[in-house]
């Protein structure tokens, strides 16, 4: 088995607020293999974007990284110098942030936006080589060469998202983090963009961490999936197992949620409110909303444990696999 390319260990990211620290990411541990597609799902406010930014060490005040490790090929990104992390970003680990396509520079041509990132890292690359690289990248994400000279407003949403992908892969990183890359696109364009992302992923052998909440998209795209709830991982496993036989009660409810074209009129929202992150419930953070809660749940925090090989769950209903 290949060694993990990315290892996240007990990562904690908090926000300083007037009422004390808000624990947006509270002890997340996960790993990605080279070339793997991993999905991170969780409800709105569960800490997905906070985690994505922290993996790049892009956390901004009032947010701060309270502790933990992010090992990229063995290098701890939390510990390295500011200078070093700048070299790693984009070159080794790239992020397509949430809402990226609306943050493209409106007065800059597409080609310059792509070349800018490359130039930062490869200062000595001659202009002609940069131009050539830029055209290769456009082709990779299936954009026509003439789009190089266009401005963002001349492109459709799907095309803009492709530009963001081109930027993310411009230095052939080992890991790409994509935070809801298609949630603003319609299904037809979403499928096209995801197919392109899939092809790029395969041809570069890069690992992808896909952040989102569209269970349908996850089922279609990723191999393994992690479910985040209130800043903690509730469950991790292969996408097939998690969908077919979810273990954590929250995952079960989550899988039952998406409306389908089959049955009309039933909305299966999870009862109760998302927890207060400033003052989370005692014990298991999900216990106030859990249909299977026991007396232990409100007292003891369940740790994430491997209950079958490759199946991790943080819930008192399960016991650790004996090895």
């Amino acid at each position: 088995m290949k060694a993990d390319i990315l290892q996240v260990r007990n990562l904690r990211v908090y926000y300083q607020t007037s009422l004390g620290p808000l624990k947006a990411v509270d002890g997340v541990t996960l790993s990605l293999k080279p070339g793997e597609r991993f999905g991170l799902v969780g409800e709105s406010g569960s800490g997905k974007s906070t985690l994505a930014l922290a993996l790049m060490r892009l956390t901004k005040p009032p947010g701060y990284i309270e502790g933990g490790q992010v090992l990229l090929d063995g290098l701890d990104l939390i510990k390295v110098s500011e200078n070093e992390i700048r070299k790693v970003r984009l070159a080794q680990i790239a992020l397509v942030p949430q809402g990226a396509m609306s943050s493209l520079n409106p007065v800059m041509r597409i080609k310059d936006q792509i070349i800018d990132g490359i130039k930062d890292h490869l200062k000595k690359m001659p202009g002609s080589a940069l131009e050539e690289r830029m055209h290769e990248l456009l082709a990779k994400v299936e954009l026509k060469p003439e789009m190089a000279n266009m401005f963002p407003h001349e492109l459709s949403g799907g095309m803009k998202q492709r530009v963001c992908l081109a930027i993310a892969i411009s230095l052939s990183p080992k890991v790409i983090i994509a935070d809801e890359p298609t949630s603003a696109l319609d299904v037809v364009v979403q499928r096209q963009v995801m197919l392109t992302l899939g092809q790029v992923q395969e041809s570069l052998g890069v690992s992808i961490l896909l952040v989102g909440h569209d269970m349908g998209l996850m089922a279609q795209f990723v191999e393994r999936i992690g479910v985040l709830y209130a800043g903690k991982l509730a469950e991790v496993g292969s996408v097939r197992e998690v969908f077919k036989e979810s273990l954590h009660p929250y995952t079960r409810l989550l899988i039952a949620c998406p409306p389908s074209l089959e049955e009309k009129g039933q909305f299966k929202g999870i009862p109760g409110l998302p927890p207060l992150l400033l003052n989370p419930p005692s014990g298991c953070v999900f216990h106030p909303r859990c249909p299977q809660t026991t007396s232990r749940c409100s007292v003891k925090i369940p740790s994430l444990k491997e209950v079958y090989p490759g199946r991790w769950v943080a819930c008192h209903l399960y016991t650790e696999v004996k090895r």
């Binding site: 979403q190 499928r191 392109t196 569209d214 089922a219 077919k244």
Partner: peptide, 21 residues
């Protein structure tokens, strides 16, 4: 084109050209 939340049910192939200007 709707992605089905079931890993066993594959997205159908798209026959339309990707690049629609």
């Amino acid at each position: 084109s709707i992605p089905v939340p079931d890993p066993d049910q594959r997205w159908g192939q798209d026959s339309t050209p990707v690049l629609v200007s």
